[in-house]
Nucleic acid binder design. Structure first.
Length: 255
DNA sequence: GCTACACCGCACTGAAACCG
DNA sequence: CGGTTTCAGTGCGGTGTAGC
């Protein structure tokens, strides 16, 4: 089965180019990854030879990207409250940069929603981030005030960094939370709302997205179930550069 | 002694709560 | 009302504990 947007045309696989949406970035500190440890920490050897500890903003296992020796780029924060001045933003995998910062996926999604560049999500004039969606659960966006669709639309963004060939895979480790989000989205559909799971693939070498069944079969099952209940499963890919993350195209999701 | 499970700290963000 | 503080959230990995 293919994501609901594509369900009517399962043979159509070509990605669709999007109008421009980008998030500026200043990842001007270059180096090589020595190791990533303790979930939030990574040691990086700068080109000068100096070794620094940087904040790693990706809480996942970073499977497939957590390779010591790989080129990395970091941004610099002037927040005096931070213990670590630098943030690991991206890692070189093959010929592309892969965005590691999970928050950037939400930022690019927010920009895309605001600009209306994702065809199935344009037309909403009211966008709220981080909206409480029932008991102990928050979803990334709620869209309302659509000229033709009176339903509130809930959007949960997932950052995809792992791939196999040209297929983006999510999650990169067992994720109860991601599964719970799917269940929350399905609940919203049964309440009469519209619900979207939006994968933001922070690498430009993917042409499709699917659940990482081998890593988290329960999540893959929940995804299938959510899609069958009417949750729309969508994906966009972004090209990651040292100066910006730019949305490029929509991708089909294999459910 | 071994395995399985529970708990906690890690650094940061952003929303919520609080206070003047 | 604006500024400040608190807290939930994020999952890995190390440590502690219980049970066999």
């Amino acid at each position: 089965m293919v994501g609901s947007q594509m369900a009517a045309q399962p043979h159509r696989r070509s990605a669709r180019e999007l109008k421009t949406a980008s998030v500026p970035l200043k990842a001007d500190l270059c180096g090589r990854l020595i190791r990533r440890y303790k979930r939030f920490l990574a040691d990086v050897e700068l080109t000068s030879g100096k070794i620094i500890t940087v904040h790693c903003p990706n809480p996942g296992s970073m499977r497939g990207t957590n390779r010591p020796g790989s080129l990395v780029r970091c941004s610099t924060s002037d927040n005096p409250k931070r213990k670590l001045k630098h943030t690991l933003e991206m890692i070189r995998v093959g010929r592309i940069w892969v965005g590691l910062h999970t928050l950037r996926a939400n930022q690019i999604a927010a920009r895309a929603l605001a600009l209306g560049v994702i065809p199935s999500l344009e037309g909403y004039s009211h966008i709220e981030p981080e909206v409480v969606a029932g008991a102990g659960s928050r979803l990334d966006f709620r869209l309302t005030d659509h000229p033709k669709d009176p339903r509130p639309t809930w959007v949960e963004v997932k950052s995809v960094t792992m791939s196999q060939g040209t297929t983006g895979l999510f999650p990169d480790s067992v994720s109860k939370r991601a599964k719970r989000h799917l269940e929350t989205l399905a609940q919203k559909v049964s309440d009469g709302d519209r619900a979207i799971l939006l994968y933001v693939v922070q690498r430009a070498d993917c042409v499709t997205v699917k659940a990482a069944h081998e890593i988290d079969p329960a999540y893959a099952e929940a995804l299938k179930n959510a899609a069958s209940l009417g949750v729309e499963i969508q994906a966009v890919s972004a090209r990651v550069r040292s100066t910006e993350i730019r949305l490029e195209k929509t991708l089909p999701v294999v459910v």
